[in-house]
Computed example of a mutant assay.
Amino acid sequence: MSLISSAAGMKKQFTATGYVVNPDRTRMLMIFHKGLQRWLPPGGHVDPDEFPSDTVTREILEETGVNAHHIGTGAMDLALTANDEAQLPTPFAMAAQLIPESHKDIEHIHMDMMYLLEAEDSDPISARISEVDAARWFNRTSIINELTTTDSVRSFVRNTLEET
């Protein structure tokens, strides 16, 4: 049975994740997630009345101290000119993720919007220990071969990061 068909009736939450790469796309910013005990891109829950594209930049700053900016994914330009519409940065992918039961919550589903962002890897990282255990930049080989992470992260890295 697939995750999507087995998720009927389960609690679901919107999240936004920032796949932050350096300008030459040789490194990616990762955090060590306390609860899941694995290396992941920074991100978190979309707050009420918050655009998901703002969620991801807020979470990156909160978790790592890094100021990242959206670099887009080639979404259709709607050429909006009126004051009553605005085009938002578009996620490059969305995924459903099963989150195991913990002391904080029941087993549930994250509906994750994955955004492509860029930041200078020379800028200092200040991991907020209340948020994450660590934050670091990693190259392609380290992420694919050495880190405990997810298949979606490895797939992104294979398709996006350059060899160093």
Rank of each mutant, 00 (worst) to 15 (best):
S2H: 13
S2P: 08
A7R: 03
A7L: 09
A7C: 10
K12C: 07
F14R: 12
F14P: 02
T15K: 15
A16G: 03
A16R: 11
V20N: 03
V20E: 03
V20W: 11
V21I: 14
N22F: 12
N22W: 13
T26Y: 10
T26V: 07
T26N: 03
R27H: 14
M28T: 06
I31H: 04
F32L: 05
F32A: 00
K34F: 04
L36V: 05
L36S: 04
R38Y: 01
W39V: 04
P42D: 00
D47P: 00
D47N: 07
D49A: 14
F51V: 06
F51G: 00
T55D: 00
E59T: 02
V66L: 08
N67Y: 15
H70R: 06
I71T: 06
I71F: 10
A75L: 10
M76N: 03
M76G: 01
L78G: 02
A79V: 07
T81L: 15
N83K: 14
D84N: 14
A86E: 08
T90V: 14
P91F: 15
F92L: 12
M94H: 07
M94W: 07
A95N: 10
A95E: 10
A96N: 06
Q97I: 15
E101F: 08
K104P: 00
D105S: 11
I106L: 11
I106S: 05
H110R: 08
H110D: 06
D112K: 15
M114H: 12
M114Y: 08
Y115W: 11
Y115Q: 02
E118H: 04
A119K: 03
A119D: 00
A119C: 06
S122E: 09
S122A: 13
I125T: 02
S126K: 11
S126H: 14
A127S: 07
R128H: 12
R128F: 12
I129K: 11
V132Q: 03
V132R: 05
V132K: 04
V132F: 10
D133S: 14
D133Q: 12
A135V: 06
R136E: 10
F138K: 02
N139Q: 06
N139W: 08
S142R: 11
I144A: 04
I144L: 13
N145W: 10
D151S: 13
D151F: 15
V153Y: 09
R154E: 07
S155N: 07
F156P: 01
N159I: 04
L161P: 02
L161C: 05
E162Y: 11
E162Q: 12
